[in-house]
Amino acid sequence: MPRLVAVTAALDDRAMPPGLSDGRPDAPAAGEMHADAVLAIARHGDRAAFARLFEFFAPRVKAYLMRLGADDGAAEDLMQDVMLTVWRRAPTYDPALAGVSTWIFTIARNRRIDALRRGRRPPMDMLEPELRPEAPAAPDSAVAAQQWERRIATAIATLPPEQSQMLRLAYFEDRSHSDIAEALKLPLGTVKSRLRLAIGRLRSIFESEAAA
């Protein structure tokens, strides 16, 4: 087991998300458990539920912020800010619209942009239900949203390495596509086509979900 952990760690981001292949029996429901935790915070300010979310997401949100260039102290502070925003915004979380990881990702992304803009014109929270003109999603899509995240994570893990690498660079490096091309010594067209291929592959997963 320790060996597997070491190998997974060495593979870094190619590691599968919990519940996909690491054999932990409780893991497949992780997305739903996170959703339940957010709903428990929304309904009765459940501090234990917050602690569970914190345990899983705080180290990942901090890692995300550090990948994007924050030093340890700044990432720690911004992570606190993100997690407190999770607590505060829990009543606006709609499990039919997005998985919890997606929701927390957008909060972390937006808090980071907000910090960079120094609070001037905070970015829109596009998941904010009141900003969505469309009709509410179907009742069973709450489960679907959590499952999507898992399927995408699986799909990312099965992308050709050069495509998943490009995807991570796009999300975790605050650099333009041409800067990425320069750093990797690749033509800009190659960077763009790899990204397009990766996005197309992920999109086909959504489309097949929708058709199912």
């Binding site: 927390i104 990312i156 996005i199």
Partner: peptide, 20 residues
């Protein structure tokens, strides 16, 4: 956009965590 944000969520889930 929702799909691309869900991709961000999936990447966050699978990022190598750091200690807090």
């Amino acid at each position: 956009l929702d799909q691309l944000e869900a991709t961000g969520g999936a990447l966050l889930q699978t990022i190598e965590p750091v200690s807090v």
